[in-house]
Amino acid sequence: MRIVHLDSGENFVEIGEQRFLVLRAEGKGCHTISAKCPHRGGPLHLGTVEDDGHFLKCPWHKTRLSIPHLLRNSLPTIRTRGRVSIVVTDAKVDETPHACFRKTLLDAKAALAGVNGTP
């Protein structure tokens, strides 16, 4: 298990062979989901949002994934003021995380449009 702390604005994490995208939108919380499509491992961070934020379409095979369902399996994440901390539950201790900002990442605001705020 590894704890990854992101600086303000960072929205993408690589640790070992795993990739995660961090979705933040005002009033919708902050969520970390795997960037790997459960179908064939396609890059979800390059996907497109459909149906007002209810589905995410993988760019490889056009698989439509329910965003609320993806969020149910999201990583434990805390946003406190500008800082985001993520618990990467199945990371190895010797794997060094790399966080960055990716401009090409899918639109977090659109992706979370259909999501209720978190407690």
Binding site: S74, P76, V87
Partner: peptide, 20 residues
Amino acid sequence: EEVNVSGSWTIEAFEAYFED
């Protein structure tokens, strides 16, 4: 508004976060 908590928390994840 200052704090947002999300994801699938378990006691193991919390203990790891606390230890950090």
